[in-house]
Write a protein that binds this DNA or RNA. Structure first.
Length: 595
RNA sequence: GGGGUCGUAGUUCAGCCCGGUUAGAACGCCGGCCUGUCACGUCGGAAGUCGUGGGUUCAAAUCCCAUCGGCCCCGCCA
């Protein structure tokens, strides 16, 4: 055989490369790792050997060991080596203070090439990245990169902290099925055909929601799971078709209990992973306030630029656009951009144009100068309105006031978007800052134009606010839910609720969503039945593990914290999944593919 | 389903607007030299279906159309 094949390294590993320090000087060590770089001086050869803990410099001296030196001559990038040698302190002038191991090196006495490597298709060094396509195709090489190693280990440490914390709090980890039943509400299901039951399908769970409720009914009292979830919807930078949730549920909680628990958990994660103390408790906003002040149900509190409602100021305005809007019962919302942040006329025009095209809304703006208001609409705004605006919005000279009129349900989210764009434009969204908050009192239902019926804002098992029980039937759109989201820096990190534990109320909720009693029984009979056997009140929350990892790793892409992610077209570039299957497999499953 | 953007040596990119020598650079790779480098240095070398298909043209990496793929966004994601 003319190729290298060693089933085992010829000597034990005593240390990881990246962990050696001056204190190890004089020790005989065994190391295994990849060749990160090779510097051949004809005589001396230096090799940077890399393993998961980092890099250490090996020295091959032909006078010390000709055989090892000869082996080192043939070594190339990403060869996998086992070496044995002595840790030696470097002379003063040769210390590399860029490297944690830079004060020492390993004088190699024995070396064995355990495997050779083709030249890698992209550089694997610190700070280097190829394009996404090639990284995903050779994911196992991408994952060798120090950044990816760091990311996945941060994720590991976060999950470890979560498990320790929840275990300490008396939570029991229970696994729930991956093959489960399709659900009519919510995202598109991934379906799995049943061979044994031709024509029938399982679905992969979108979340273990109902299963954890059943565990409460079963008396486990406090459950959690790092649960894999599946949703067959289009991908985004922060959305993969399969993802993980920290899913938990407890018996008889008040919303405050869940919130305090989660705050403690997130603080524990940040302390353990980032060494950061997160101030507790998190601030809270009701959904209504969040929408009115930030135009979002997941506001980014790292910067101000709050929305201001200026209806009062324009009560008797001569500006027809605003007057007409108010007459229609609409509102005028504004963002005051302080004098520190200036726009060019062109930027204002572009902003207005984009708002018009994308939302059909007109942007009115004015610059607040010492001399008075400036801008195309300034002449329509009289002194009384200006003074009133100044009081409502706190205007100062140099500020720019951006105003939009319309239905609050439309204007607020639009202004919320605009606010985020301004935050980006003026670099107000600092990556190092952590602004957690709770958004509470979500509405129970919203009206879906597409389906022309009520749909759940959270899910159909969410309990109504006790004060709004009567509203549920009378004015369902006004009923609030006992639901809460935890938000970090404008990203939804998780959401939960108190659930309905009464079968009659649950049936009522299904009916309001447009299910007949018959349909509800067919689809959720097992739940209704379970609720009728002494189901305790219960509630919980689910947090997105991947998004949490993203925040901990300061990355904008979920792919950077998932070992084997899929592309935007939900393809695995490494294995080319999904693929066509053998006709025989289809026949066994009673499936015919229609092209 | 829609919008945007990118696709040129193994890799990262320039060239494309304004069509015209043999398509360049850096890194990597291969070979020589080199005992203190650490992104080693140095001398030399190899390396390209310009994503794919079609069209316009005397002539296409360059202009046009279609298509495939990566990324970002809208829709969608209880």
């Amino acid at each position: 055989m003319d190729f290298a094949f060693s089933p085992l390294p010829p000597w034990p590993r005593t240390d990881y490369c990246g962990t050696l320090r001056p204190g190890d000087a004089g020790r005989q060590v065994g190391l295994w790792g990849w060749v990160a770089a090779r510097r051949d001086h004809g005589g001396l050869i230096f090799v940077d050997l890399r393993d998961r803990e980092g890099i250490v410099q090996l020295v091959f001296n032909p006078e010390r060991n000709p055989a090892a030196h000869e082996a080192a001559r043939g070594v190339r990038s990403e060869y996998y080596l086992a070496v044995r040698g002595e840790v030696v302190r470097r002379s003063e002038s040769t210390v590399n203070d860029q490297l944690p191991t830079g004060a020492i090196e390993v004088a190699v006495t024995d070396a064995k090439i355990l495997n050779t490597s083709q030249p890698p298709p992209f550089p694997l060094g610190e700070g280097e990245t190829g394009n996404e396509e090639i990284r995903l195709r050779y994911r196992y090489l991408d994952l060798r990169r120090p950044e990816m190693q760091r990311n996945l280990r941060r994720r590991h440490r976060a999950l470890r902290a979560v498990r320790d914390y929840l275990d300490e709090a008396g939570f029991i980890e229970v696994e729930t099925p991956i093959l489960w039943r399709p659900t009519p509400e919510g995202a598109r299901d991934y379906l799995v055909p049943s061979r044994v039951n031709p024509g029938k399908f399982y679905a992969l769970p979108q979340s273990p929601q109902l299963l954890k409720q059943l565990l409460m009914i079963a008396g486990y009292d406090r459950y959690y799971q790092i649960a894999r979830c599946f949703r067959d919807e289009d991908l985004r930078a922060n959305r993969q078709p399969e993802f993980s949730q920290i899913d938990l549920e407890m018996t008889c909680p008040r919303p405050d209990d869940i919130m305090a628990l989660v705050e403690g958990m997130l603080a524990a994660v940040y302390r353990s992973v980032a060494g950061v103390d997160v101030p507790l408790p998190f601030p809270r906003l009701t959904y209504a306030d969040a929408m009115a002040r930030f135009g979002s149900d997941k506001p980014d509190l790292r910067f101000d630029l709050e929305l201001k409602r200026l209806d009062e100021a324009f009560g008797g305005t001569g500006f027809k656009v605003f007057a007409d809007a108010l007459a229609r019962g609409e509102s005028i919302y504004a963002i005051r951009v302080p004098a520190d942040y200036q726009f060019t006329r062109r930027e204002l025009d572009e902003m207005a144009e984009s708002l018009k095209v994308r939302q059909g809304l007109g942007l009115a703006w004015a610059k607040i100068a010492e001399a008075g208001w400036q801008g195309p609409i300034a002449k329509f705004i009289d002194e009384a309105a200006r003074t009133h605006c100044a009081r409502l919005a706190g205007l100062h000279p140099g500020d720019t006031l951006l105003m939009v009129a319309g239905r609050p349900a439309k204007v607020c989210p639009t202004m919320g978007e605009l606010r985020l764009q301004l935050g980006d434009k003026f670099k107000l969204r600092n990556d190092e800052e952590l602004r957690f908050l709770w958004v509470t009192e979500f509405p129970l239902f919203e009206y879906s134009e597409q389906e022309r019926r009520l749909v759940s804002v959270n899910h159909p098992f969410t309990a109504p606010h006790p004060d709004d029980l009567a509203l549920m039937a009378a004015e369902p759109l006004k009923a609030r839910a006992l639901a809460y989201d935890v938000v970090l820096n404008g990203e939804e990190m998780g959401g939960g609720s108190i659930r309905i534990h009464n079968p009659e109320l649950q049936m009522k909720a299904f009916e309001l969503l447009g299910f007949s009693r018959q349909e509800a029984t067919t689809r959720f009979g097992f739940l209704l039945e379970a609720l009728s056997y002494g189901a305790p009140p219960h509630g919980g929350i689910a947090l997105g593990v991947d998004r949490l990892a993203m925040m901990l790793c300061h990355t904008d892409s979920l792919r950077d914290v998932i070992a084997f992610p899929k592309t935007q077209r939900a393809v695995d570039l490494m294995t080319d999944a999904p693929t066509e299957v053998d006709p025989r497999q289809l026949r066994e499953l009673s499936i015919k593919v229609v092209k």
